[in-house]
């Protein structure tokens, strides 16, 4: 099996701040891979660096066997799409769902727009009734579904998920996660998912990488994490923190 995403020694520098310090990582095709760590550990920056939104100082990123240069071309965006953390900020406030979904099709000159939009909305569990709504007429969960539909409409093979459920309440979280699971199974997608919630990562991902201060701490499988078979102190602390408050 080839690697869907292979990253070697990736460095990201904002002004003088090194947000990523030589991170390497390999995501296999069809795999769901998790990135965990506290805020500021560089996990979201890693996703942004892959999409070209963060300035890469050195290192290489290879997607489906093709090394990426400084700029990303349209073909790249048909392979890789991203779902953002905040569903309230990721939908244009003045566009209907219809317009939002049409935009990627117009950019890539795809002809069967009508059908694709209907299919995409069905796929994420939103019927036709949602097609002409504005973002402010949708709930948080519905917005995130629209964001997922938008990411899927170009039929990418890799989906980058930047804490896709952290802004949603618990029951909606489960719905959206199940939707993502289902979509992944049906479309045989590769997921690279960022979360600070270990429970979500162990539920969704087969393998994961723990990050701290822009560096990789260790790479684990989900079962290792569930069994607490970890070798680094930092990961142990994370695990303890995720168990929540314990009454003394």
């Amino acid at each position: 099996m080839t690697a869907a995403i292979a990253i070697q020694g990736l460095e990201v520098v904002f002004d003088r701040f090194r947000a990523l310090k030589g991170v390497s990582l390999e995501v296999r095709e069809g795999e769901s891979y998790g990135l965990v760590g506290e805020s500021g550990s560089g996990k979201s920056t890693l996703l942004k660096a892959i999409t070209g939104l963060a300035p890469v100082a050195s290192g290489t990123v290879t997607v489906n066997g093709k090394p990426l240069g400084k700029t990303r071309d349209k073909a790249f965006y048909r392979e890789v799409q991203m779902v953002f953390q905040d569903p309230y900020g990721s939908l244009h406030p003045r566009q209907t769902v219809d317009r939002l979904l049409q935009e990627p099709l117009a950019i890539h000159g795809i002809a069967d727009g009508e059908k694709r939009i209907e299919r995409a909305l069905d796929e994420v569990g939103l019927g036709k009734g949602f097609r002409f709504r504005y973002a402010h007429q949708l709930s948080g969960g519905q917005r995130q579904r629209v964001a997922i539909a938008r990411a899927l409409i170009l039929e990418p093979s890799i989906l980058l998920l930047d804490e896709p459920t952290s802004a949603l309440d618990a029951s909606v979280q489960a719905e959206v996660l199940n939707l993502l699971e289902e979509v992944r199974r049906r479309r045989k997608l590769t997921f690279l998912m960022v979360s600070h919630d270990l429970a979500i990562i162990t539920h969704m991902c087969e393998r994961l990488m723990v990050m701290q201060n822009g560096e990789a701490v260790e790479t684990l499988t989900a079962s290792q994490l569930i069994g607490h078979r970890v070798s680094e102190d930092y990961t142990r602390n994370l695990l303890r923190a995720s168990e929540g408050f314990v009454r003394a």
Partner: peptide, 13 residues
């Protein structure tokens, strides 16, 4: 710098 503009950038616009 809002996410919805980034999302359009990620469409390749």
């Amino acid at each position: 710098n809002s996410d919805y503009i980034k999302a359009v950038q990620l469409m390749g616009a």
